[in-house]
Design a protein around this nucleic acid. Sequence first.
DNA 1: ACTAAAGCCTGGCTGC
DNA 2: TGCAGCCAGGCTTTAG
Length: 275
Amino acid sequence: MPELPEVELVVRSLRNKIVGRKILAAELLYRRLAPGHSPKDFAKTLQNAEITAVERRGKFILFKFVSENTLVTHLRMSGRFLLLRPDNETPKHSNAIFYFDDETRLVFNDQRHFGLMKIAKNGRLQELFSNLAPEPLGDEFTPEYLYRVMQTSRRSIKEFLLDQTKVCGLGNIYASEALFISKINPKTPANKISRKRVAPLHAAIRLVLSESIDHGSTLNVDPNNIESSYYGGEYEGHWRVYDQEGRRCQNCRAPVRRIVQGSRSTYYCPHCQRR
DNA sequence: ACTAAAGCCTGGCTGC
DNA sequence: TGCAGCCAGGCTTTAG
């Protein structure tokens, strides 16, 4: 599922391909993709919009235009952007289409209908993201920050790491991976982790995110690769513990365990990540 | 102010 | 082979 590295790769790739393009027409095919916009309003607001930038904030993708509007999108579970040529048919589960001035079109494809879009005035962006944690690869995200917000929560550290208002960008995969690297038991309450152990956790979070960006992620996020399924990115199979139940731990050879926390799977090594 | 759980979705898998 | 039922999970909303 797209987490920060996947979103970052989508953004980089789209940035190269569509900045400078003009949207001649926009079509909202699934109303619930953009709650708060009617298809008519959606089409009208984006008609003739010239794309000046594609940016990322947390797991959100932002399309900036010459106008004062920004199109904010979230891929959620299964959302993908596809760049189609005139001879490509629009695939199933396409929920929005943006027709460009060069005959190509950008499609938002999402089989599970979890994805979201919102058109916001630029002046409103700050408040839109006011609850989102600082960028985990940025300067504001320090071990001191992490320790401070960890003190505010008694939830398990695994569930804590998925809370985008505390730490943003991690999802179920990278949360397990970061805890494995920093040898922290996923069941430990966030506020029970000593100051001394926060620095390795902070470093592990940065490591798993930047490493995946550098290796091309585990998912197929190439908007030109319309044939391929969602899975099968270049970095597939490089998970240390995620989805490795029963396989041997890379460090100690103990079998990796799967538990359920907050109705989500957590994978960890019960030997390396002892309480 | 925090935490827990339900809800949104569909394709793929399991078991009968 | 068919089908009911479950599972996957990012995030919001509701309830406690």
